[in-house]
Amino acid sequence: MIDQTTSTPCPWDELISALLDGELDETEAQALEAHLADHAECRSELDELARVRQRVRTLPMRSGTPAFWLRVVDDVASDRPSSSPTAQDRAAVASPARLRWASVAASVVILAAGIAGTRGGGAPATPGSGTTASRAAVIAGITATRAPAEGDSAGEDVNVGDGTVVVDVTSTTIPGLGSDPEWLQELADAINDVLN
């Protein structure tokens, strides 16, 4: 059951991954499949490697933190490589460019009015209204202020301190950087830091 590493492997073995990847031409694939019908060891190899392959392919994607994206777009725009001494120490420093990227890089639409609503401790303002909202929208370079559509389940209310940022994560037209609530919370925090 366990191949010795010193034993001679079946000569067909080396084609197994290519078969899984659809990288054999038709003749090779047919020949290998015919062999598989006769050779249990190669069949079990195929099964096991198919599982490994599938597991690697379904590992969760990684997004990077909002703070990272807010920093890196600034650094790239300024032509700073990762090794530059200033690049690493600036993560916490906010700038309008980074704020803009809070929305852009994250592929989310921030309903700017939500940012506005709350400085006075009152209820969140209606999306799309208020002067602070306008300012925030300008700073952030955000033009969209649409509220989540009816039946749009993914509009997320993210509380930030005494304010509320409404982040619409329905825009799956863009792969985006995050849709899980914790990530959005971080993003909201980062944006709020800039605004306050």
């Binding site: 994607m61 990684r62 997004s63 990077g64 994206w69 890196v72 777009v73 790239v76 852009v104 890089a105 592929s107 863009i174 792969p175 985006g176 950087l177 995050g178």
Partner: peptide, 8 residues
Amino acid sequence: VARTHGRF
């Protein structure tokens, strides 16, 4: 590129 392929 960052916006549409950042996560990738």
